[in-house]
């Protein structure tokens, strides 16, 4: 789908609210996807590269939560 095919709501309030909702959905999707990958044995560097962010960023954002959830984390990349 090209950018011109993304439906843009006519009302600015709807368009701005869609941005807020998409960010929230993306955050939720990231939480679930990172947890899924780490449970499947991915390493931090792999997850970071797949997300297009630094290893430090992904670790800072998700490590505590996953450790609290009892996910067994790989310490080193293969």
């Amino acid at each position: 789908m090209s950018a011109s095919e993304i439906p843009v709501p006519q009302d600015p309030a709807d368009a701005l609210a869609a941005v807020v909702a998409l960010r929230r959905l993306a955050d939720q999707l990231e939480d679930a996807a990172v947890e899924q990958a780490m449970r499947a044995g991915w390493s931090w560097p792999q997850v970071a590269e797949a997300l297009g962010v630094t290893r430090q960023a992904v670790h800072r954002k998700h490590a505590k939560r996953l450790i609290a959830a009892g996910v067994k984390l790989r310490r080193r990349s293969p």
Binding site: I6, P7, V8, P9, D14, A15, A17, A18, V20, A21, L22, L25, Q28, L29, D31, A32, A33, E35, Q36, R65, L66, A68, A69, V71
Partner: peptide, 18 residues
């Protein structure tokens, strides 16, 4: 708000994050 840009939460079937 998601539906205004053609997105549905129901389309996502990932496990709930901790």
């Amino acid at each position: 708000s998601l539906s205004a840009v053609g997105v549905s939460r129901a389309a996502f079937n990932l496990p709930r994050p901790s």
